[in-house]
């Protein structure tokens, strides 16, 4: 279903439908995350992907245009490039451990340590929160800073500044 939605997004040229389908895509992805035991991630994906990003994209197409012009270039070259890249990636997965294998390399490093130590070191039932805020506090701080910077960037790009610049331009002319 995810693949079908993604292909539908690729085919569609009405941007409103595209944005709505991307919201559907996010919700389906959230379902998949719940299936794979990542409830926190599913929660975030549902709130962010289906909520905020849909609103922002609708805002953008309200400010720009609704219909995509058909491309004049042939889609064959990008298609071929994608197929080659995809084949290389699939070749790369052949060495991966089976899905759900408890002995996979991912599960033999710090993950289990966090699971065991957080019981008496942190004492917070939700291990994801414990790691996020305590063990990996630096990462989260940096990442909050990224969100902060992105917010500043958006504000610089599309708010306020134009109004402040207008008097200067009038002086110039």
């Amino acid at each position: 279903m995810l693949v079908a939605t993604a292909i539908a997004i690729a085919k569609m040229d009405r941007l409103f439908a595209v944005v709505m389908l991307s919201g559907v895509f996010s919700l389906l992805a959230a379902l998949l995350f719940v299936n794979m035991d990542a409830v926190d991630v599913a929660f975030t994906e549902a709130a962010v992907g289906a909520g905020i990003s849909t609103v922002l994209m609708l805002g953008t197409i309200a400010l720009t245009s609704r219909v995509e012009k058909p491309s004049t270039q042939s889609p064959l070259i990008p298609l071929a490039a994608c197929i080659v890249t995809g084949a290389a990636l699939i070749y790369g997965t052949l060495d991966m451990p089976n899905f759900g294998d408890p002995n996979a390399p991912v599960h033999t490093h710090v993950g289990p340590e966090y699971l065991e130590n957080s019981q008496h070191e942190i004492g917070v039932p939700n291990v994801v929160t414990a790691i996020l805020a305590s063990y990996r506090g630096y990462d989260t701080l940096g990442e909050t800073a990224v969100v902060f910077t992105a917010g500043i960037g958006v504000l610089l790009l599309i708010s306020g500044l134009r109004r402040r610049r207008d008097p200067d331009e009038e002086e110039d002319t």
Binding site: V39, D40, A42, F43, T44, I52, P125, N126, L132, A133
Partner: peptide, 13 residues
Amino acid sequence: GDYSPGGGFQAGV
């Protein structure tokens, strides 16, 4: 957020 799924990011959104 300590006890159930959730936390600052989700709550903020």
